[in-house]
């Protein structure tokens, strides 16, 4: 399969990239990892007039803690998340997620920013970032603006990024002590999108009750879903079977899946319930350590 022709542009700086985006209008696209965009172009489902390759722009790839946030550069590769000592030791939810995205070769190119900016509810990071309460930094002609993750996903393949903006950073509040997270994804095989997946991030208080919690759902709706009712069902409570069961049911109620080759809608809803239980148990276990 052969992609349609386009003009290739390779800016050296971020302002230059933003300028090119504005100059070439709606049909210009950012090329970062390309692991979603290029397959769509080969299927001729995407036909950008111009590709603005941001891969050579310095300073867009990093993983560091700074000012109360974990900051991930938009161009950071999934494989870099997987390999990061900081992520391995302190952000198990991100590690869980990065490990099950596509396959090793794709993870070497695919970027965290691209995974979010694509606006695909089947991608894995959106649910994770919803659970983590992340912020998105968008850079445009007027400089940076910060978008709360809850305001980021608008509809299928649409985010609140303006056309002239580039997703340059993801900020995640550094979790306090006694925090843990987990991502449970059921996929038909390695490399597949989730049939359904659940991301949980929680913080326990001294006696072991849930102090803070975020739950995100993958591929069970037109956008990634934050299961707010499920979070409410947990806050201030100890994670006994009844509480976990109620939260899992609330998460399942939040899912709006449709039937497809990965299974009927009822199955996906059932999966959300089951995977929420498992993710909560794993996250709590990690928080307790």
């Amino acid at each position: 399969m052969i992609p349609p022709a386009f003009e290739y542009l390779r800016p050296k700086t971020l302002p230059e990239a933003v300028g090119l985006l504005q100059q070439h209008g709606e049909d210009a696209k950012i090329l970062s990892g390309g692991q979603s965009l290029i397959p769509m172009m080969k299927l001729r489902l995407a036909r950008p007039s111009h590709l603005i390759d941001i891969n050579r722009i310095a300073g867009l790839s990093y993983i560091r803690e700074d000012g109360g946030f974990l900051k991930i550069g938009g161009l950071t590769r999934e494989a870099e998340l997987e390999a990061s000592e900081l992520i391995r030791t302190k952000y198990p939810l991100l590690l869980d997620t990065a490990r099950v995205i596509a396959d090793p070769q794709v993870r070497n190119l695919a970027t965290v920013g691209g995974n979010l900016a694509h606006g695909d509810p089947a991608n894995d990071h959106p649910a994770t970032m919803l659970a983590l309460g992340a912020q998105i930094v968008a850079t445009g002609a007027k400089g940076e603006r910060v978008i709360a993750i809850d305001d980021f996903f608008v509809s299928l393949f649409t985010t609140s990024l303006d056309h002239g903006e580039i997703l340059t950073e993801i900020r995640i509040p550094i979790p306090p002590a006694k925090s843990g997270g987990a991502y449970f994804k059921l996929e038909r095989k390695v490399g597949d999108f989730a049939t359904a997946a659940v991301a949980v991030q929680l913080t326990l208080d001294g006696p072991g009750a849930v102090q803070k919690v975020g739950i995100g759902l993958t591929n069970v709706g037109g956008t990634p879903i934050r299961a707010k009712r499920a979070e409410e069902a947990l806050r201030g409570k100890k994670l006994d079977a009844a509480t976990i069961g109620a939260a899992a049911q609330a998460a399942a109620d939040a899912a709006q899946p449709s039937s497809d080759l990965r299974g009927p809608a009822a199955y996906k809803t059932g999966l959300i319930k089951e995977l929420t239980k498992r993710a909560l148990a794993r996250a709590a276990e990690r928080a307790g350590k």
Binding site: Y8, L31, G34, Q35, I38, P39, K42, L51, D53, N55, A79, P104, Q105, V106, N108, L109
Partner: peptide
């Protein structure tokens, strides 16, 4: 030094 799928990358990259 990293594995990539050369069908999902442009030569110019």
């Amino acid at each position: 030094g990293k594995t990539v799928k050369s069908c999902t990358m442009f030569a110019v990259q």
